[in-house]
């Protein structure tokens, strides 16, 4: 990828040069000075140098933009991984196998982004009592915090809160809706996501 980038300004300059070949009708020759052809040639070379310079900057900007895009993309992916919702079994606050996979994927991002802080929002499905579900949601959020801090991520970087059954992800009363509603959501409350440099 890097090598291809280097060729870009050269190609661009060539294209600009050839585009400048055909021009206005030649003006009358000037006596005692450089010929019109000489002036044109000089102007052309100045223009060409300018164009080449411009092309180089643009290309660099392009490259930067692409690099930026790549970083953004990676950051978006990292954000998505960080925000991926973890689901729980009925009435349980233990991390499931699927939940563990999702949480492990968050670890490298949390390590490379030490300023990032998260709010862990616990939720329950509508079965069970209103107030107990607040406790259940809280336990789920705390399970997640304990899991992550067990891998060396400082527990201070997380706050927990529970919505109980009051903010369902899916507003239906069936097994699939309940499964999606038993969850912990991850809200980034501060800091920058830093994507680790991959070589």
């Amino acid at each position: 990828m890097r090598i291809t980038h280097l060729f870009v300004p050269v190609i661009a300059a060539t294209l600009i040069l050839s585009a400048c070949g055909g021009g206005d009708p030649p003006p009358p020759p000037m006596p005692g000075g450089p010929t019109q052809a000489e002036i044109d040639a000089r102007n052309d070379s100045i223009a060409a140098a300018g164009d080449a310079e411009q092309a180089r900057t643009e290309a660099e900007r392009d490259a930067q933009r692409r690099e930026q895009d790549r970083m953004n993309r990676e950051r978006d992916e990292a954000r998505e991984t960080l925000e991926a919702v973890v689901q729980f079994d009925y009435d349980e606050s233990d991390i499931t196998t699927a939940g563990e996979r999702l949480l492990r994927a968050k670890l490298p991002i949390l390590r490379s982004s030490p300023t990032v802080r998260l709010r862990l929002e616990g939720h329950a499905d509508e079965r069970g009592s209103t107030e107990y579900n607040l406790a259940l949601g809280s336990r789920r959020a705390e399970s997640v915090r304990d899991f992550l801090s067990g891998f060396g991520i400082s527990a201070d970087r997380f706050t927990t809160t529970s919505f109980g059954e009051e903010r369902p992800a899916v507003n239906r009363s069936d097994e699939s809706a309940w499964a999606q509603n038993r969850r912990v959501e991850f809200v980034i409350t501060g800091g920058q996501i830093v994507v680790s440099e991959d070589d």
Binding site: D91, E92, S93, S129, E131, Y132, A135, L136, R139
Partner: peptide, 11 residues
């Protein structure tokens, strides 16, 4: 009061 202190999913 209500509690989950027994550690089971049964308050």
């Amino acid at each position: 009061f209500n509690s989950n202190r027994l550690g089971t999913p049964f308050p």
